[in-house]
Amino acid sequence: MAEESAAGCTRPTGGPADEESKEAQATEQLTENKETQSMIKVGQKAPDFTAPGYFKGNFTSIKLSDYLGKWVLLCFYPGDFTFV
């Protein structure tokens, strides 16, 4: 189900450093998100995704649809090392 994947060197890139373009980008992103981000509905298909992960000592890639036939509890959280 969870395929092991090698530890690569790719990392997410950072955003712009100066405040002006950061603000401009934020506004742009807000407008964009207003159009695209809405809450999903109960009783409807969970959007499928593939995500890299860490599981019991290995890096893996997880695809939600591989878990069809099982109950899934999908939890999002603000960040590693946050306290709650």
């Binding site: 934020a26 809450m39 999903i40 009783g43 939890c75 999002f76």
Partner: peptide, 27 residues
């Protein structure tokens, strides 16, 4: 974002929790 729980202002995900049944339906 697709699940509607990404906070674009803070740049983090809020504490969203989804129960998905064996047919892939959000319950």
């Amino acid at each position: 974002s697709v699940y509607g729980i990404y906070d674009e202002n803070a740049g983090v995900e809020t504490r969203g929790r989804f129960i998905i049944d064996p047919d892939g339906i959000v319950q």
